[in-house]
Design a protein around this nucleic acid. Sequence first.
DNA 1: GTGAAAGCGCTAACAG
DNA 2: CTGTTAGCGCTTTCAC
Lengths: 374, 374
Amino acid sequence: MPVKLRKPRARLKDLARLVSVSPATISNAYHHPERLSATLRAKILESADKLGYHPDPTARGLRMQTTGTLGVVYADALSWAFIDPPFSMFLQGVAEATQDAHFRLLLAGATYTDHDVEPVRNAAVDGFVFYAPMMHDPRVAYVEQRELAAVLVDGEPGSAFPLVGIEDESGAFALADHLFRLGHRKLGIISMPLRPGYPIGFAEPDEGLAAFLAVRDRLAGYAAAARKHRLPWQEVASLYVTSVNSIEQGRQAAHAILSGPSAPTALVCLSDQLALGALAAARELRVPVPQALSIVGYDDIPEAARTTPSLTTVHQPHAEKGRAAARLLLDQLAGRKSTSLLLPTRLVVRGSSAAPMNAARTGRKSMSGRSSRG
Amino acid sequence: MPVKLRKPRARLKDLARLVSVSPATISNAYHHPERLSATLRAKILESADKLGYHPDPTARGLRMQTTGTLGVVYADALSWAFIDPPFSMFLQGVAEATQDAHFRLLLAGATYTDHDVEPVRNAAVDGFVFYAPMMHDPRVAYVEQRELAAVLVDGEPGSAFPLVGIEDESGAFALADHLFRLGHRKLGIISMPLRPGYPIGFAEPDEGLAAFLAVRDRLAGYAAAARKHRLPWQEVASLYVTSVNSIEQGRQAAHAILSGPSAPTALVCLSDQLALGALAAARELRVPVPQALSIVGYDDIPEAARTTPSLTTVHQPHAEKGRAAARLLLDQLAGRKSTSLLLPTRLVVRGSSAAPMNAARTGRKSMSGRSSRG
DNA sequence: GTGAAAGCGCTAACAG
DNA sequence: CTGTTAGCGCTTTCAC
């Protein structure tokens, strides 16, 4: 039984009475300084301070039909969001842009059970940034139906909303191309879930199954690189799907693949988090990286440059995505036109990728001398 | 000139007219299902869907005098928050607790220029969690004056608000004691700013200067350990203060200390971030860690266990702090009593600390055999 | 330069 | 089971 017996907060009316002016004058003191004398304004503000008064944001929001708050919607439960380095960097960009515009930031995620719209419905915000929404995300559909403002980041085209995306497929292409050039012919792919609730374990390396654009594009990029090298993708790649995009899941997946029959010479992880886990697994199994096994990631999170060996990966401008998404949303809210944006990716070759031990067979000149059998 | 010409959203009144019932019935359909027939309710909800109607959160908030939103206030600019791993883990805990309670999460930070109260003033929330507020933070004072609900995490006692803290001083004590036992007699301390805008560079290792409780407690803990070993703290320690709690700043600080005159055998960093930077600096200078130099951190972020060498540090329960803080705040809002909480810390000895090369002199039996001069 | 009054959209008494 | 009404706290015409 919650009991509220706290002394009620001071209201505009109380302050008006105290200073013996009308409510309108109080409001003007805050928002239209030029409409009253400086001395009166000073007196009002001072009394407000004494009373502990400040205009109620909710009432103000109702009256002004604006909240000054942007909602950022994470595709998964919010508690996962903060151990997802790319999302953190993305938020950093969003925070920069919103702060510059004096907007506040509200975070929403999915519930544990489903992609319920509830967190989005009841959020008092002026618009939403959807981070990596899956196909047909009901929350996006809801916002669209209500004709609220929104921006989709790494989301599907087809909605009314502007998009911020990255050249995911070409980044993945460059990465796989790099491996094929080195002579790799057997790839173990480690992916985050293709869609919510997708079962852990081996699956067909078919991007058509993926409900997340990033997953689909990356798988498509790898496959395209295989085509370029005239390699049969289904034979070249074996795909292992994890339940979460985490280091631990990457570790387990790598163990599963490396103890399996396919004996890949390279592990291609759809995120650096997964790659970090794969690196740990290789260490545990005493498989030297990159001599006996190449491991590559995606995202270029800061830690990718710090691990031993450092991680070959695809760079994408996380913070820039955040800034762009927030700006696009702010533009919409201000009635300015906002158009979709595609940001570049870039292959970053570091220490975790090299020619496989039997690269001599490929006939190409290997760029790496390290072909000794360990 | 922003122009709003979008078709106005459907309102409760519109829906009431459409279904030919009174506004109250619409409201009841949402919040008191038992007060109307199931068929009528179904009809209402269906029509609402068709209209794209949903009760306006702001209006609801005004009427109910509650927003269902918790504000988390970061001590620094929000854009720093997301590259601060301990804060991310903290948020994870907060998110878990708020999600369970079906609350939303609003994030606020400082402005670039100062610790302005504005971000806190205009936030439509039911209460605040202050993360690591400095002494006399004006935003805390403001919230106190307005008699809003709040919880202080790693903050000063003395306000009206319950606290969530950790045993910072004893953690620091255990860490420094560990080093002294190993035989270290010269420590380089690397600290984040003692107060906002504190100048970069060497400073007196006096905890009294620190405006942040964590900094003060940790410095005090180190000094207490020195006292226990009857070592004169001012001679044992040299303190270098960085401008930001970042890896890069830790790197620069370590360079400054190691190229200075004091020649410490151990670098004691007030955060793992700083320690990661120190590790990088040691690598660059080809100083073997821990043989020639011990490096220790604080916080036990996940990466601390993954670096080479792995980092000796002090563990603290970041996510648990977040859960506790959110719960305490939720308790206050529900009228339940909420009391302060002190969570334990724990020394975690890993690979980055060992006896110094000249440990033989100390007379204690060294726990490490590695004393060779390199 | 200041005040009276209307109303943003919703919910909860209370009456029927 | 349903409708009428008041009012949450604020801002803003529009008079004066």
